[in-house]
Design a protein around this nucleic acid. Sequence first.
DNA 1: GGCTGTTATGTTTACGTAAACATTTGATGG
DNA 2: CCATCAAATGTTTACGTAAACATAACAGCC
Lengths: 355, 355
Amino acid sequence: MDTAEGVAAPPEAGVRRRRGGRVPTASMADVARLAGVSSQTVSRVSNGYAGVTEETRRQVLAAMKELGYRPNSAARALKRGEFRTIGVITFSLATTGNVRTLEAIATSAASEGYAVTLLPVAVPTQDEVRGAFSRLEELAVDAVIVIMEVHLLDAATLKLPPHVQVVVVDSDAGDHYTVVDTDQAGGTRAAVRHLLDLGHDTVWHLGGPEGSFAAQRRADAWRHTLAEAGRNPTPLVRGDWSAESGYRAGLELAAREQCTAVFAANDQMALGLMRALHERGRRVPEDVSVIGFDDIPESGSFLPPLTTVHQDFAEVGRLCVEAVLRKMRQDGPERGTTLVPTRLVTRASTAPPPR
Amino acid sequence: MDTAEGVAAPPEAGVRRRRGGRVPTASMADVARLAGVSSQTVSRVSNGYAGVTEETRRQVLAAMKELGYRPNSAARALKRGEFRTIGVITFSLATTGNVRTLEAIATSAASEGYAVTLLPVAVPTQDEVRGAFSRLEELAVDAVIVIMEVHLLDAATLKLPPHVQVVVVDSDAGDHYTVVDTDQAGGTRAAVRHLLDLGHDTVWHLGGPEGSFAAQRRADAWRHTLAEAGRNPTPLVRGDWSAESGYRAGLELAAREQCTAVFAANDQMALGLMRALHERGRRVPEDVSVIGFDDIPESGSFLPPLTTVHQDFAEVGRLCVEAVLRKMRQDGPERGTTLVPTRLVTRASTAPPPR
DNA sequence: GGCTGTTATGTTTACGTAAACATTTGATGG
DNA sequence: CCATCAAATGTTTACGTAAACATAACAGCC
């Protein structure tokens, strides 16, 4: 088959070239000439306007096909004043949540006829973020969705073009921005209650890094839920979301006899935690119950399978796109936070306390 | 602080509006008027041309700042004939490899002044792929990087604009396209040899799904390495990359007394496999050695920590961008496959066979 | 037959930028 | 003092599209 050939094939001999060495593409004018109509008629056909004779339409379509006509999106964007593109700024795609959200955003955007441009920020410093935003200024986007901590954002947003709408994930900046996020507090409460309901006296928490809003929220909700139930507060142990950090924290927790239930702020840390507990001879769930957050695909295959809080990233992404498009269309400032509910997934890593 | 305010603030009263309800942005002409120069001089300043008096430059920059001027990228793209954007087509971002490659592509592209537009393909069918490509036609991209099986690609490429260059990851289509990929065969050989060197008679393989080229390559290399060493071939067990499928396959393999060494085609399946072995009372690595592929961040925290083949996704992404930019600039067809070497990471899941 | 309205199509123009070309200014040298 | 040249800046134009406006053709009606 020659189809692959077609793409990579050298340009045909005699083909006219521009300075960039690019193969010229047919424009509406070319199509119009071949079809014997005006370019405006070509435009009408191209955009599916009514009011073009079937006869004319067929001729135009034939000419388009013959010349391999593709609308020039730069010209379109220039004329229409919009790019039909949403920019997504995010930190490393190393965390499941960001990736899944991104994916959902891309899918939702596509179904709305929007493309998604990715703006990775290598290092989460204000300077880097500022850099991403200044690249963005020149970029062809109508709106921006930010998946990151807003405290890194503030100084940078100064430079954003005024008509670009922003929606933020993973933030508490509902006062200033439109924010969509998982219901961190609700998910945490469900997790902690689950452990208390099983009969544990109190629940320990293996939290995320200090800079993270999500980590902060989960830790706050954990403390609050314990207080609400009149249980003893326990010291917070911090990791950095990685399994490795969960392992280190786990070694620490394994040494505490009285610790029978741990709520980890994500599944990866729960994984490392369980390895540490195992190494130190503390069985899960017989001696210690462990619960995670995220419900990554692998969590059902951990040893033991992990009880965890399922996040609906697809919904978060969908809502982000919906919100940002709504903001664009109304051009009105709309603030406030939309929370996406979570669901507790009960597996084998939680059980009543020993004795 | 008011910075956040600035972005979401309602448009100032009296601000002129266009039909779309968009806030108009300043153009070069506006800047030129304010600075008292021609718009061409503004263009020169904007593009950093020499031959503008320091005095003039300062005036123009001041006017730009006052008006909040941002170059219009649509107009730029139209004029220059290029978008400085690379499209990336990929299946679900559920697999580590795709995500990490995507991230590296985005980072490399950014450092070359290119943006990355994401084109998710929800379901890996020819129709869906064709859909992505036809969206692409209208999209503002100069080149495309495809992270998917090329056999899904062939029919679709028909419709690609002729000047758009393509680079493919995860494929054997080096004859037709420029392909960049991990050295699947080399990595597999290292993994299988490692197990044989430890003293195992032969090595079983938990392979990936049939459609996957990477899975195919790993299975082929596994067979080849066994044959090369004069060992007995064993039946291939297939999974679908997920930990869950690894678990199911693991139940099967656990029943085979003679199976002492398994090479899993990725880390997730190795995870599920180890859980199944554990459940059936076969210890890793004492009874069965397990080796994975990918070296996902969590693999060092599995129970036991997983010996695996490390893939350098960052390098793959970098090479993709490099290749596609080279192709664009030369406008010449360049085919062939570039392989990125792997590295065996030895952890606790592999040991000499029992007895 | 001429008037009105509708439908199909053509013509003009503007979107914002930057290349190509044109003009102005000022300095240098014979 | 004017010719020559270079540097700085201005003017024109084209990129491809689509809105706005203009025209042509034709049907229906009194």
